[in-house]
Amino acid sequence: MRKKSIWVIDDDSIFKIIIQKLIARSDKFDNVNLFSNGEEASLALKKGIKNKEELPDIILLDIEMPIMNGWEFMNEINVLLSEMVDKTIKIFISSSSITFEDKLKADAHPNISGYLTKPITLEDLDKIAL
């Protein structure tokens, strides 16, 4: 199976270290990019499309972030996703929030493939890499 490219968007620096370790262990991903908030990630995505760089297969997205949070990021890239024909990006929410509203909102969102509650486990990563 081809290894996947993954972007992690989260403002928690410790989580970022942990997720890197987990990704390394899972051995399902060959490319990892980390971003501290939605704005950084959306800029990178736009730049990637423009320069025809390789785009991620999977994005792990936190909700609570400064500057641009998860929902704002989804709004920002909505147009980009719809214009993308030859590539599908699976976006998963990874949040420590166990608030039911957040889960519902994520399920209802057409461009969100799933909702993961922290802590993220190796099994979670295996599942989303399928």
């Binding site: 928690d12 410790i14 942990i18 802590p119």
Partner: peptide, 10 residues
């Protein structure tokens, strides 16, 4: 939870 989940992961 963000802290506890980190602890649990670590």
């Amino acid at each position: 939870r963000s802290h506890t989940s980190n602890i649990s992961s670590l």
